[in-house]
Design a binder for these strands. Structure first.
Lengths: 197, 197, 197, 197
DNA sequence: CATGAATGAGCATTCATTCAT
DNA sequence: CATGAATGAATGCTCATTCAT
């Protein structure tokens, strides 16, 4: 993959929407040419193939999301509070780029074959959560739970909630109010469903 | 779609694994012929196309899962207990048919265009949860929470946790111990992450 | 080809329309089943294949047309008069069964491979004309002309004129007034275009 | 349809023969590749489908024929003489490209769906005749007759006569002596069959 | 006799990808 | 650097036909 100039990067905006709408296989290079205005042979000049175009889009978003996540948890607040900040940051990233996020979900199955992406998902979603769970257990504001279970549950809760709103909002950006959704999700995840009586 | 004889139904076992492994578009009718032993033209005799084969597999599993879910919640136990039973039933269905379950996830994006399937997902996952949340609020064993948020969170938690184990277990059936996973997930979902001190 | 019962013959009415509308290759056995109500496998019980269905329809019509033509020229009238009668008889057959007639034209190219049909066309169209030209030359009411040229010209004039009206009349039966068209055509063919001054 | 380069146009020679021999549906893209040497995917690069290949061939020939027809009637001769010239020009076009001409006939039935072609047939065959009939009526060398009937009769006479010789000549080019055939046809069409005594 | 069930053989069409310019 | 032109490789789907009952 050749270095992507900023112009190119700009042109590639919109490509995610096509992947989101038609799926990976349903997306033809011709369709990408249509939305980007970049001739297919030029796409091949920059990317090694269709899959690499997808990879580029996902990585780009995941890297930005991971950075946002890292920033969100790099404060002095309690682990519990930072967990809320993290979820809000993740949902914000989703709300701001619903297409890419949808693609990510739709191509979950393909992720095995895209180790870079799998790794980036870990960085943006699982590892920050795991860290906060450990911090929370240490500072006593969070229960000590099975990390694997908890990261899966949180990843699922965040992703599916976000997707739910994205589908409802089709094409609006931001797709939903991330702060609000984060609050609802966190209320549930922190306090649980059980009545406290 | 012609009525599927029991022989045919049996032959179609295994088809889900192909969809799971290669994705919908990546799955060729030829590949389905290979695993099922049914000539492609015979597949076309029974199904109207590739998509209908997928639909059949998903619907079949979802119907069975919905039935299991319905059974799980049709007891005299408290809503909280039945919620655990429901999650266990859903995870059991996933563990027992990991391929179909993986396909379902992978084709989430396609679901818009498959209203039957979307409806079946509601029946098997969302509606039973919503009912128990209402029951639980009534019998005071569960907190009164936003139903939409809670069903999304639970759906996400269950599906992603299940998928997580399915991917780890590649090809073993059952893919994981549903009771155990259900217990972990329920512990989290019921009591939340927050320390109770 | 098994003997076609009268019931069967009746059922096959309508088949010509399908061939006319979709062409030979465009006509599927399934389409024939639809219009005739006869299961495709039953069609195969009676006919050896799709082509034989077509052959049956064309031969049936051509035989009837040949009979009508033979009758038309078996009178005591002059050759010139009988030529008019013949053309009227041929156009009447066309007007009464426009679909079959259209098929015949459309499948002209295929006729080489259907010797029976080619022979039947000779019987219904070319041979009666040739006979009358000879008679006419003998009784001095018709000029002595090259028989080949004249039969081609007459065949062309009749067929194309008939088809012209059939296309205009789409689906009406009779498709046109055979007597009137015959008169126009005969006027031209007998007297020619040249001014007589 | 992309603009057809001259090389391409040359390559497409020969395609008509395949259509003539096997009919439209009987002609496979593979067969076209064989005779043209152009890979099927390249054919699809230039044409939108099989039908457009046919359309291209017919239009190409009809345009040239229409031009020849127009030239033939654009002289100072009498309408009667020019009618003979026109028929000779049309038959010359047929004799020189028997395959295309055969296809045109064989696909008469399909012409409804190909308005471009229907129009081109009008330009090459019907309209020039109609014009000469009007001119002839004006200059008193031709009888005043029903134009519709006369154009049909002439079209039929020319086309069927030409086709008759083409079938006899299978594959020879020119397929027949156009001047001679034109003379025979014109003799009949001008003077009619009726004895002048 | 008649037919429902099943299938082998084909084919139009698509598309990712290459490469000369 | 960028791209228009060209194509090899694949695949979903159709349909005439068969045959056991």
């Amino acid at each position: 993959m050749r270095p992507i100039s900023d112009d190119m990067r700009t042109s590639m905006r919109g490509a995610a929407a096509v992947f989101a709408e038609r799926g990976f296989d349903g997306t033809t290079m011709e369709a990408l040419r249509e939305v980007t205005g970049v001739p297919t042979s030029t796409l091949y000049y920059y990317f090694e193939g269709k899959e690499q175009v997808l990879t580029f889009l996902l990585e780009d978003w995941l890297d930005r999301t991971a950075a946002a996540a890292a920033e969100a948890i790099a404060t002095e607040r309690t682990a519990k509070e930072r967990l809320g900040d993290l979820v809000a940051a993740q949902l914000t990233a989703m709300a701001n780029d619903p297409a890419t996020c949808q693609v990510l979900l739709a191509e979950l199955g393909r992720i095995d074959r895209l180790p870079h992406i799998a790794e980036a998902v870990q960085s943006a979603f699982h590892r920050p959560v795991a860290k906060l769970l450990a911090d929370g257990a240490a500072d006593r504001h969070l229960r000590s739970v099975d990390v694997d279970v908890a990261t899966s549950v949180l990843y699922g809760a965040v992703i599916i909630s976000g997707l739910h709103h994205i589908i409802d909002a089709r094409d609006e950006v931001p797709a939903f109010d991330a702060t609000e959704v984060a609050a609802s999700v966190m209320d549930l995840v922190l306090h649980g469903l059980e009545s406290e009586e």
